[in-house]
Amino acid sequence: MTAEQVFTSLKAKFGDAVLEAKLDALQPWILVVPERMKEVALFLRDDPAMQFDYLMCLSGMDYNDGKLGVVYHLFSTVHRHKIVLKVQCAKETPHVQSVSAVWGTANWHEREAYDLLGIIFDEHPDLRRILLPDDWGGYPLRKDYRVPEFYNGVKVPY
């Protein structure tokens, strides 16, 4: 199935939840609203024509214009086709629906995106920091992050 067919059927099924798409990109992507991400994900996984059963990667983004985002790279081991999904959310209210119930891979990936960018995945079963210590302040991969002068009494800058 081509990216255009995926986009058409998503648009037909979810209407306004599918915002835009760039289908001539090297990896064609489709932008979805974050409040309905899980529905879309479940459809993409379970529809017989889609069967995107493999979440290759889940990445967090800071677009540096007041928006954060998540990028999902999907692959179907059955049909051997690929698609990229994107969601965007405001930096002040960075809420995205969790897809960890759809693809188990997403569990730790979403924790990493939360850890480093502060994206909050609603309904995630265990949303804790995964790499940084629990007492860390802030989200270091955000573009406006500033390194603190001290961490636990140890000077941080060079």
């Binding site: 940084l132 270091p140 992050y145 390194v147 140890v154 000077k155 941080v156 800058p157 060079y158």
Partner: peptide, 14 residues
């Protein structure tokens, strides 16, 4: 040394 927000800049700091 510059962009490693999580790296201790020398173990002699501890």
């Amino acid at each position: 040394w510059e962009h490693g927000y999580h790296v201790l800049k020398g173990v002699d700091r501890v």
